[in-house]
């Protein structure tokens, strides 16, 4: 246990350069560069903010804020999942040649996405200011919700990144799964607008709790459901442990399988 952290700590420089590369390298050859971290979610937000009020019968007031407090954490989540599926395969050339703690790769995927998410949070704050919706002190729960989402992402990243090496179809399956999960998560609509017989989907979907919590603190300006968040925290910690064990078992065959 202590060894795991010591090993990662010893390779902290590699972790740092990897995270930087991931953030900067993404937009390296594009004209607008890092500005795309803002433009991408903004354009996506614009599309949804125009379309969904047209389809939904009773759109929420301040729909843009309602949508963006959910869409931006969702983008964080879906980026982690899609990038995790490719990260080991994309780095196969170094995996086959040198030793370094392989868990550096999923950790840097999740961490760089977290940095991007922190930057995108400015968009949320901007819209709240723009529409003069105001802030409440419940915002102090933001780091706590982020921590849960970080752990959830890390656990999933460990599992997906290592499993895809052995089951290459997973990479394609994940695109569809993410799309389905988008509609099964209260992003474009609120969680209580779901009919009773489908509520179980919300209760089984960890992202639903996280999105609801963000929405509670930014949009409804109420106390997030601390009890369910607490349970979720314990579940995500367990997920990280299981994910790490699976990853560690499977990483031994990476060099041969790639």
């Amino acid at each position: 246990m202590k060894n795991i952290f010591k090993n990662i700590y010893n390779y902290r420089e590699l972790l740092k350069t990897n995270i930087k590369k991931e953030i900067r390298g993404k937009y390296k050859h594009s004209f607008l560069g890092v500005l795309w971290s803002f433009l991408n979610p903004l354009l996506q937000l614009a599309v949804y903010a125009i379309i969904f009020p047209l389809i939904l019968k009773d759109a929420q007031e301040n729909y843009v804020i309602f949508l963006c407090v959910a869409l931006i954490p969702w983008t964080f989540f879906s980026t982690v999942v899609t990038q995790s599926a490719a990260v080991i395969i994309n780095n196969s050339n170094i995996i086959k040649k040198v030793y370094f703690p392989r868990e550096i790769l999923p950790i840097s995927v999740v961490t760089s996405a977290t940095v991007n998410f922190l930057i995108s949070t400015i968009i949320i704050l901007f819209f709240i200011l723009f529409y003069r919706a105001g802030f409440s002190w419940y915002i102090v729960f933001y780091p706590f919700i982020l921590l849960i989402q970080y752990l959830l992402s890390l656990g999933i990243s460990f599992l997906i990144s290592s499993l895809t090496v052995y089951l290459r179809d997973l990479e394609h399956l994940i695109g569809v799964a993410i799309m389905m999960l988008f509609y099964a998560t209260p992003i474009a609509y609120s969680s209580d607008s779901i009919p009773g017989e489908f509520q179980f989907i919300m209760r089984l979907n960890p992202m639903a709790y996280i999105i609801d919590a963000y929405r509670d603190i930014f949009y409804y300006q109420t106390m997030p459901e601390l009890k369910s968040l607490g349970i979720l925290l314990i579940i995500t910690i367990a997920l990280v442990v299981i994910g790490y064990i699976v990853f560690n078992k499977l990483q031994k065959g990476f060099a041969e399988e790639l």
Binding site: E13, L14, K16, I94, V98, F100
Partner: peptide, 28 residues
Amino acid sequence: LELGAGFHPDFSGRENIYFNASIFGLTR
């Protein structure tokens, strides 16, 4: 074993020293 693992062709020699040495577990 395999020299130059992780060398990035677009980066300068100096930058690659940093990147390559970090793979070997060196700090900045």
